[in-house]
Amino acid sequence: MTTAPVKSNVPSRSGLKAWLSSDAPASRGHARAVQLYLGWLKLYENKLAFLGFLIIFSLVLIAAFAPLLATTEPNAQDLSKRLLAPGTSGHLLGTDELGRDIYSRLVYGSRITLLIVGIVAFTAPVFGLLIGTVAGYLGGWVDQVLMRLVDIFLAFPRLVLALAFVAAIGAGIESAIIAISLTAWPPYARIARAETLTIRNADYISAVRLQGAGIMHIIVGHIWPLCLSSIIVRVTLDMAGIILTAAGLGFLGLGAQPPEPEWGAMISAGRKFVLDQWWVAAMPGMAIFIVSLGFNLLGDGLRDILDPKKSQS
């Protein structure tokens, strides 16, 4: 039993584990490794978040090894095998109206989903973070102008903007991604600005100002790391919505175009047979459901893990 609220070094742990849970790291890399390991431990302890993590991790693996996992080419048609029920003659999840193997199409479709999610996740939050932190840190007229810009973008309905892009540059995944990114960044800017307002007058910001650091140095090096956790949480929670929007665009025929195995487009195609051959629409639906659930679970868990107030102890 510990007798006082003082953490003692735990001496009797061996090798890598001891190195990773060290109280006194010996180098920059070591310090970072310890922090990552602690985060990993917390993720591991949170069972639901870990399940979410496993789902997302599997998605990445499936996308990476799609050619090995798929049983046929995703677009290989065989009209003699139209609309086979799941499990018949080697078609695990059945076939669609053109005799294409649904399982293989879902496996390849994960690449498209991941592409959309990846591009949106790296553009919208970064742009939002930049706008929000600059507005929050500088304040005054800069803040006014930037935040009104945010308001304008927030007022655009996603699907209508996507329609506009389709009209301008043609239907395709690119227009879907651009439309989603353009409408996804403003909430991140708002979050980042709110966080910035609470830390801009902190003593540690004053201290680095006194050292003669420039505005961008302070924003990128000092303010960004503190906004990052709430942004990451928001991104993971938004991912489900982004997948659904992409699927919705696909469903409306505005996103991925046939014969690309995009999940939303697959549901759209299966709509016609939904009463007699339910699996054509249901299987991609399940895929969307599982991946969205994975992102939501991970996002909820990350909120607990990354909360700076909780990571104090």
Partner: peptide, 11 residues
Amino acid sequence: PTRTGTVDAVR
């Protein structure tokens, strides 16, 4: 009770 064992605040 904490992750690393019980802390006695008053003994």
